[in-house]
């Protein structure tokens, strides 16, 4: 009972800007209360369509940038992937949107100094540039790998600081190296001696990054993209099987306990084809779990 979690702000945020960036929309929102409190890796949850909307579930987005010192803004990167995100990407400047934040736990700092590798798959790179600033401020050498299926689905290549390392990969070779983000990772770990990896992107990518990290004795912190309905820990829909410090696997909420997990704690073998099974040894697993 000693732990008192920080309050969550619910604000009616004004849209300051909405810019098309490749396949995505970069949306700037006026939300000073959230901007001052947020840390890299945390996210916001937006309500869709106003107070009488028939789309009830919130859409969650990792925070790309905050500007607490200037205009109090919070920036997110959104892919138009359905009716909810379609409404959000169509928001015009001066429009209002109900926003909750900051939510979840941010990225932890590396346990040891030296270099870190930051990996963003698609718009999973959104929080990585802000994280890079924080790491650099803590004396950490930053190396980015930004990857996507195609060049237009990359985000942030032109935003990487000149002093950071940068490798770009695309599945079709339309920009950077042809292949996956994990292809150059082994060589990069060897070359930089990095012991910490940060990654955000699709689940198969995070599983693969975790595998490479484990093979090199490195720690991977992964930001998961699980479907969330509320963003604040009450709906229990965004769970993943995660092994705790006590060795026990629990169905763990990505929103309140994540969205950052140590990659080695996630039971990746239970996750496949957009479905997550309950491992039979998870706490309270039903008998005969599939």
């Amino acid at each position: 009972m000693s732990e008192v979690p920080a309050p969550i702000a619910q604000v009616s945020a004004t849209v300051l800007a909405n810019r098309r960036v490749g396949a995505y929309h970069q949306i700037t929102l006026d939300a000073a209360e959230i901007a001052v409190a947020a840390r890299p890796g945390q996210f916001v949850a937006l309500a869709v369509g106003g107070s009488t909307s028939s789309l009830l579930l919130r859409r969650s987005f990792s925070i790309h940038r905050t500007r607490p010192e200037t205009d109090g803004s919070v920036e997110i990167v959104v892919a138009d992937a359905g009716p909810g995100t379609h409404w959000i990407t169509a928001l015009a400047p001066q429009a209002q949107v109900d926003m909750l934040g900051p939510l979840g736990r941010g990225f932890p700092l590396p346990a040891s100094p030296g270099a870190a590798v930051l990996i963003g798959g698609g718009y999973g790179s959104a929080p990585m540039l802000w994280l890079a600033d924080v790491l650099r401020g803590n004396g950490i050498e930053v190396h980015h790998i930004l990857g996507a299926a195609t060049a237009d689905r990359l985000f942030g290549v032109d935003l990487v600081a000149p002093e950071d390392g940068l490798i770009v990969t695309t599945d079709d070779g339309s920009q950077g190296q042809r292949g996956r983000v994990t292809d150059p990772l082994t060589e990069l770990l060897h070359r930089t001696g990095a012991a910490t990896i940060y990654a955000c992107g699709p689940m198969p990518m995070l599983a693969a990054v975790t595998g490479v990290a484990q093979a090199h004795g490195a720690t991977a912190y992964v930001a998961v993209e699980e479907a969330m309905a509320c963003g604040i820990g009450v709906c229990m829909t965004c769970v993943l099987p995660v092994r705790g410090g006590d060795g026990i696997t629990r169905m763990t909420r990505s929103c309140t306990d994540g969205p950052i997990f140590e990659g080695g704690s996630v039971r990746w073998e239970a996750i496949a084809n957009g479905r997550v099974a309950v491992p039979s040894d998870a706490l309270g697993a039903p008998a005969g779990t599939r």
Partner: peptide, 13 residues
């Protein structure tokens, strides 16, 4: 007893 609940997806809009 403790309950793990089901696998996901657990919700649909």
């Amino acid at each position: 007893e403790p309950q793990s609940g089901r696998g996901t997806p657990r919700m649909a809009e």
